[in-house]
Amino acid sequence: MSDTAVIEAEALTKRYGRFTAVDRLDLAIRQGEVFGLLGPNGSGKTTTILMLLGLTEVTEGKVRVVGLDPTHDPLEVKRRVAYMPDTVGFYDGLSGRENLRYTARLAGIERDQVEARITEALTRLNLADVGDKRVGAYSRGMRQRLGLAEVLMKRPDVAILDEPTAGLDPQSTHALLDIILGLKHDGITVVLSSHLLNQVQRICDRVGLFNKGRLALEGTIPELVQRVLGSSVRLVVEAHGGQVAEALTRLPNTRIEMLAPNRWRLTADRDYREQVSTAIQRVGGQILALGIEEPSLDEVYTRYFEGERRAA
C-alpha cells in the first residue's frame, strides 16, 4: 500500500438551501486501500460520493480525485472512477449483456475490447449464463452483481460502491464482499459506504465515521476501538461451582457484568486471563470457557453515537 492519496477533500461543503448536508469535510483515501464510509442515513455519505464524481455541485471547499478536479474535469474523473449507486437500476427490457454494452460504449471502451471485457466481468460475477436474459427477470442479488460487473468491466483506478450489499441475503452478501476484496487484489482503490458494520469490519482497511455531514472519526478499526472504547481488555468467563462470583469480584481493577447465569464479562486494563483462572480454581470452580472478546465496530458505533446524544 502506498501513501499517495487518490481522493482528497479539504473543507468540502454542500448546502441545499439552508440545510448543510456535508460540512467542511476533510478526507484522504490512499491508493490501494479499502475505505469504509460509515454513518447513519442522512449523514452525508452519498452526497460526498456524488461530489467526488462531479455529479453534484460543490458549494465550498476543494476536492481532488485521482489528482483531478471533478468539477472542472468530470469526464476524465468518471473515466477512471467507477460508481455503483445504492439500489442500482438497469433497463429491464434489455439483457444484462446489452445493459453493459451500453455503458461500455458510454465509458468509451475500445470497440474491439467491449465484448471480451463484458464476458470476463460476467464470468467473474457468475452471471455468464444469465447474461443474455432480460434484466427484468433478475433477482435483487443478480442486479447488484451486475452492478459490480459494470464496475469491473470499466477497469477503474477507483471503485466507489454505495451500499453494495443493501437488501441482500447473508449468502449473497458474503459472495459480494469476496468480490469486493478481489477488486482490492486487482490494485483498485475501493470506497464503500455501508451501515452493515460487521461487513465493513471484515473487508475495510480504514473507515471513516460520518456524523451530521462531518467525518467524526477516521482510522483503522483497532485505532477507532481504542479511541472510543479505550484500551481496556474484555474477557468472557463461563464457569460454575463454588463461589465463582465472589472470586471474580475480588479481582483488582476489574469491572464485572453478569451476562447469563454462570457467565460474566470482565473489563480490565490488561489481559487478566491467568489471574482469573487461578482465582476460580482456588475456590473450586470449573472453567467452561475463558476468552478475550474482540470489540466490534458495532460497539464503537453504538458507543460513539450514545456519547453524541449525551453531549447534545
Binding site: 455529479l55 469526464l75 473515466r79 460508481y83 437500476g89 455503458t103 458510454l106 468509451g108
Partner: peptide, 11 residues
C-alpha cells in the same frame, strides 16, 4: 428505474 446516476457516472 434508478438508471440515471449509473448512466451519468459514465464519462
Amino acid at each position: 428505474r434508478r438508471t440515471l446516476s449509473r448512466i451519468l457516472s459514465q464519462p
